[in-house]
Design a protein around this nucleic acid. Structure first.
Lengths: 183, 183
DNA sequence: TCTATATATGTCTATATTTACATATCGAAA
DNA sequence: TTTCGATATGTAAATATAGACATATATAGA
């Protein structure tokens, strides 16, 4: 049982999902291709952590909808109480910054401008996601969900994504302000 | 030539380094064990991107000090002008947040408190690194390095680390403020 | 003197992850 | 009608990464 496996179980604690849904939902927090997800789900199912039901759809291909078993819930709780591993960030741009003074000034500006645009786009996507969350029928009338509310986690994660993205935007903008426009 | 390889070349654009130094310097930006670094350096040397000189030390074990070749410099410039891959963050804690409402409230608080402490420690380490940078003999008298200055990249990266860490601290503190102390 | 830690370099194996190969359905647009 | 993209699920092979095994030097502290 690796981290990705527990992540899949963790998503299934909220609601039942297909493998395709799980892939889309876990990717912002743990990059993984479908070629990694599907075999893992098969293994989790074989080991009794999850089960699935075949669901026919009219407008889309049929799917397998997974849900947690009692064994899966137990494993999830035990995992939750373990200390979490340190976050691991891999960013090619950071490596490029090492040799910035070595590159053409125009290339360097472009690198920051591209990254700024990327983060601006992500910021909008996260803002949309937050609006979407708040428009859900199960969103609490009080304005924000209590810790025991099923949407509490999703709310925290979306806010985190927005805060992190804003920090990245501020950094890119600051760096650009230090780089000459011509040169 | 993978991203880590270019990252090693990028570090060598600043200054010559031993494999051990490269490992320590690249790790905050691209997690990699020495078991990955050393074979890669051997390959980069065989392919003519870098060369090394054996250096005897009195107070420490002897080492190989690597430097860029002309081929390495060319490869580095070509890489710099390519668009950078999107950053990839893997954080086990984010996966745990998915099933927060499912866990004991005490465990959840501990998770955020632990992460807050982790980031506070990192923040101090980055602040120390910035002070260290500014106390270097080659630090510019003007107060901050120009884009062409060899320390410009290191300065940007340290500021980025501080800004990101502060965003994470703010998020953890905000989350803790939403979680009840008892329960 | 023993032990631990930092420095320093390597290999081997297991696991994780990506890329490419494969197939199929449905709706929308060309 | 054919092409494209989203949905949906899988496998095989290549690559990247982590963990374990290995060795050696110097310093510091118990």
């Amino acid at each position: 049982m690796n981290t990705l496996s527990y992540g899949l179980l963790s998503l299934l604690a909220q609601s039942d999902f297909s493998g395709y849904d799980l892939m889309l939902r876990i990717q912002p927090f743990w990059p993984a291709k479908h070629s990694q997800i599907y075999p893992l789900l098969a293994k989790l199912e074989q080991d009794g952590y999850i089960r699935y039901e075949l669901v026919n759809q009219r407008d889309k291909p049929d799917k397998k909808v997974y849900s947690l078993t009692a064994k899966g819930k137990d494993a999830l709780r035990a995992w939750f109480d373990q200390p979490a591993a340190e976050p691991a960030l891999r960013d090619e741009m950071m490596l490029k910054v090492f040799c910035m003074s070595y590159a053409q000034s125009k290339s360097a500006r472009k690198m920051f401008a591209d990254r700024l645009a990327y983060h601006e786009e992500r910021r909008q996507a996260y803002a949309d996601k937050l609006s979407e969350l708040q428009r859900r029928p199960d969103w609490p009338a009080e304005g924000l969900p209590a810790p025991a509310h099923p949407l509490f986690g999703a709310y925290l994660l979306t806010r985190k994504a927005i805060m992190s993205t804003e920090a990245s935007i501020a950094w890119c903008a600051w760096a650009l302000s230090l780089l000459p426009e011509e040169g």
